[in-house]
Design a protein around this nucleic acid. Structure first.
Length: 449
DNA sequence: TCTCCTGGCACGTTTGAATGGT
DNA sequence: AACCATTCAAACGTGCCAGGAG
């Protein structure tokens, strides 16, 4: 078991010679990931996104969809998503806001969702947006379907990992690029707490059209009007101007605006007050994620990256501070240099025996703190029973402070997570075919260091 | 009593097989 | 025979809600 800090210390020595520019130099382009539909995410985020988790698994809405650029077109990549606790607290919904309800429960089995197209060449990932529509969240710790297991009433944010690897077997040695979008953080719930979130979901999710106040489903509408809309009215009486309480069938834009004007979102309220609110364990939380690349909130949408270990931007510095570009994006400006561990120096390089003929395929990676991906594969080659252990910056055994004792806190604002972590890259020549089917299995059960 | 979770329900969307036309 | 468009039903994805557990 090893913390990130430890790892960094272990690998803080001079970079291996293989890290030198050499053939990799021209590959050090700008890897860029942009979040699709950031405005929708923002709308949810400002209220306080909630995601339903159920035993059989529930899709996210909005779902994660990103655009990629800067990949090597003919190099193969694997895309992964996992969920990271935002802090070490459990929350409860108290009337109109989230409040800390105590210490977080022990981390459930950590899993990573593998995009079904993985592995695929960079050109594939870049030619269209990459959707994680079928990612499902569950609260069933015994889940056998590979869904991501979360605790209800806890806050999480998705992380997107890009791994240059021909297959899952070489992920272990590959370079990770990790991206997070602050506006995608959410609270896992078994039932919606904030009626405004419910309304937003109904208005935007096509599967929930049956619950829209559009004349259909009148039987339910009557109830809805007396419950959620009335509650909404009570909540919003002062600020929800234009809502007449009649049939609630407001134009979406008007509604969205009304929603934005309100400040039920704890972090929205924080922003309004101009106070930088923090989770009681913000420091620890920062440490927890300090190897990620932060994709700034729509606030600035500035390419951003932290190099100084242990320092993160203020949560309020980039979230919600106006500005609404079409996309939330992050660009890795500093070239990340892949490294090849000495013990593997005898192995053939990807560009020597790999399937690609377009030169070296080392993902750019930071040369400062290469880590080691601790992934094992039980019964490799048997999809469905694979027991991967993959790098995780958090875990029940990891003393990073995310489970530290709770304090008297309001619902903290989303944390800004920074940096990236990488592993030493070694490309193996073998290929194990498409991993599409594997995505339904618990491919990456985290083994925390 | 309160909070949270569960399962059944109705409704809408998605998907893919079946069918028919060109 | 191949391709395309349409139809239709099953599967799936939603939020609602009553009831139960702790």
């Amino acid at each position: 078991m090893q913390s990130i800090r430890d790892l960094k210390a272990n690998f803080s020595g001079p970079p291996p010679s293989s890290m030198a520019a050499g053939p990799d130099a021209y590959l050090q382009g700008n890897l860029r990931m942009t979040l699709e539909d950031p405005e929708l995410w923002k709308t949810f985020h400002e209220i306080g996104t909630e995601m339903i988790i159920t035993k059989p698994g529930r899709r996210m809405f909005p779902h994660c969809k990103v655009n990629l650029s800067g990949l090597i077109p003919c190099a193969k990549y694997i895309l992964l998503v996992d969920m990271v606790p935002v802090d070490g607290f459990r929350y409860k919904w108290n009337k109109d806001k989230w409040e800390v309800a105590g210490k977080a429960e022990p981390q459930p089995p950590c899993r990573t969702y593998l995009h079904p197209d993985s592995p695929a060449p960079g050109s594939h990932w870049m030619k269209q947006s990459v959707s994680f529509l079928k990612l499902k969240l569950t609260n069933n710790t015994l889940d056998q379907h590979g869904h991501i297991i979360l605790h209800s009433m806890h806050r999480y944010h998705p992380r997107f990992h890009i791994v240059q690897a021909d297959d899952l077997f070489s992920v272990r040695w590959s370079v990770f690029q990790t991206f997070t979008f602050p506006e995608t953080s959410f609270t896992a719930v078994t039932a919606y707490q904030n009626t405004k979130i419910t309304k937003l979901k109904i208005d935007h999710n096509p599967f929930a059209k049956g619950f829209r106040d559009e004349g259909t489903n009148k039987k339910r509408l009557v109830k809805n009007q007396r419950s959620s809309i009335d509650i909404l009215l009570n909540f919003c009486r002062t600020s929800y101007e234009g809502f007449d309480g009649d049939d609630g069938d407001l134009p979406k834009r008007k509604e969205a605006n009304a929603v934005k004007e309100e400040s039920y979102s704890p972090w929205a309220a924080d922003r309004e007050h101009g106070v930088r609110t923090e989770s009681p364990t913000e420091t620890e939380t920062r440490d927890m994620y300090n190897t990620e690349q932060l994709v700034p909130a729509p606030a600035s949408y500035q390419p951003y990256r932290f190099h100084e270990y242990g320092k993160s931007p203020s949560p309020s510095s980039s979230i919600g501070s106006s500005g609404s570009s079409g996309r939330s994006s992050f660009e890795s400006r500093v070239p990340d240099v892949a490294t090849v561990p000495d013990h593997d120096s005898s192995k053939p390089r990807a560009h020597e025996i790999g399937p690609s003929s377009c030169g070296p395929q080392h993902l750019p990676g930071p040369q400062d703190y290469p880590g080691v991906l601790n992934m094992t594969m039980a019964q490799a080659g048997k999809p469905g029973v694979i027991g991967h252990h993959i790098y995780s910056p958090y875990g029940t055994e990891q003393p990073l402070g995310q489970w530290s004792s709770p304090g008297p806190a309001q619902y903290p604002p989303p944390h800004h997570l920074t940096a990236d972590y990488t592993t030493q890259a070694v490309h193996h020549g073998y290929h194990h075919g498409n991993m599409a089917d594997w995505s339904q299995y618990p491919l990456f059960s985290y083994s925390c260091w």
